[in-house]
């Protein structure tokens, strides 16, 4: 391996992944998505103490910058970076200078001066991660911005499906629940469409974005109709504060009409997979038994694939630094 280049910004995007940042699925081509999934697939098959992987990002700095609370995603990125041998620094909102009134861009400049190679950023405002990426030298991975995108979640969902069913093309996927507020839904709609899947969204009208039919999806407000013959059922989390009258009248009514239970699931294909990005609200959007069904639910597998996908993303974005090598070739 060649000596690390400095500054990191001098590296041009690699041929393997010709983007400086991973801000969303929208900018990616089907080929690029396919390559990322192939790479993630190899990481998923690799032993977690693989020595070559452990050397890949040695002496590199990955900074997790979370302006919104997160345990799962932040930990998943942290584990991924550690398995690639990187130094990891976690910055969360509780300790950030945003609380002291510093603007987002000032924070970005400050952190940039510390020369992180990769910044993993989550922010509550749509577009905030993209804004930050314009002011830093390292690569930026969007770990969720507002209601906009959550690309690594869509990638890990796709990887989970691909490993189970062997393909994405031609599958019928239902995305159910709070589509309006969900960045996961947006990234998944984009990714799965690009990969040739057919998508349905199912939700009460109050939880559907305006003009959602223009996203190239079929829209349903009845679970039994919408789930008919689908291969994949993706449930979305409904925030507690949205079920008390503004968007949905009550938890009881939401679960009655939109909660995934065996009764509604009967409309889907007999072997349809059940997915959920977590954390689940059992008894709100999903019945406990369904969530724990070892034959149908791949919710735990999604978490496992999350680490592999994030290793692949870190690898792909640091190819200019690591000399186009990667480990999982």
């Amino acid at each position: 391996m060649t000596a690390p280049q400095t500054p990191s910004s001098s590296g041009r995007p690699s041929a393997f992944f010709p983007h400086r940042h991973l801000l969303g699925i929208e900018a990616l081509s089907a080929d690029e998505i396919g390559r990322l999934l192939d790479l993630a697939d190899q990481y998923a098959n690799m032993a977690k103490d693989d020595e070559r992987a452990r050397r890949l990002l040695r002496n590199r700095t990955v900074m997790n910058l979370f302006f919104e609370d997160s345990t799962r995603t932040r930990t998943s990125f942290e584990v991924a970076a550690l398995r690639l041998g990187a130094d990891v620094i976690n910055m969360s909102v509780g300790t950030s200078s945003i609380k002291k009134g510093e603007t987002l861009l000032d924070t970005a400049m400050t952190l940039n001066a510390m020369k992180p190679d990769v910044l993993v950023v989550r922010h509550g405002d749509s577009g905030a991660v993209s804004l930050l990426s314009q002011k830093v030298d390292g690569a930026v991975i969007n770990a969720g911005d507002g209601r906009h995108e959550h690309p690594t979640q869509a990638l890990l969902d796709a990887l989970t499906i691909r490993r189970r069913l062997g393909r994405l093309n031609g599958l019928l996927v239902a995305i159910c629940g709070d589509v309006l507020h969900s960045r996961v839904a947006r990234s998944n709609i984009l990714l799965l469409s690009k990969m040739g899947a057919r998508i349905r969204v199912i939700a009460p009208t109050t939880l559907l974005p305006g003009n959602v039919d223009r996203f190239g999806v079929e829209v349903f407000t009845d679970m039994r109709k919408g789930l008919k013959d689908v291969d994949i059922v993706m449930m979305l989390r409904l925030q507690i504060e949205r079920m008390q009258g503004a968007y949905v009248p009550s938890i009881r009514e939401y679960f009655h009409f939109f909660g995934l239970d065996y009764d509604k699931l009967a409309a889907a294909k007999p072997n349809a997979l059940i997915m959920h990005p977590g954390p689940m609200n059992r008894g709100v959007e999903i019945d406990s038994e369904v969530a724990d069904d070892i034959n149908r639910s791949v919710i735990r597998e999604q978490v496992e694939m999350g680490v592999a996908v994030r290793m692949a993303c870190l690898d792909a974005l640091t190819r200019p630094l690591t000399g186009e090598k990667g480990t999982a070739q």
């Binding site: 008390q244 009258g245 503004a246 009248p249 009550s250 009881r252 009514e253 009655h256 009409f257």
Partner: peptide, 9 residues
Amino acid sequence: GKDIVEMGL
């Protein structure tokens, strides 16, 4: 005039 009722039920 604030919170919608359980219209479906």
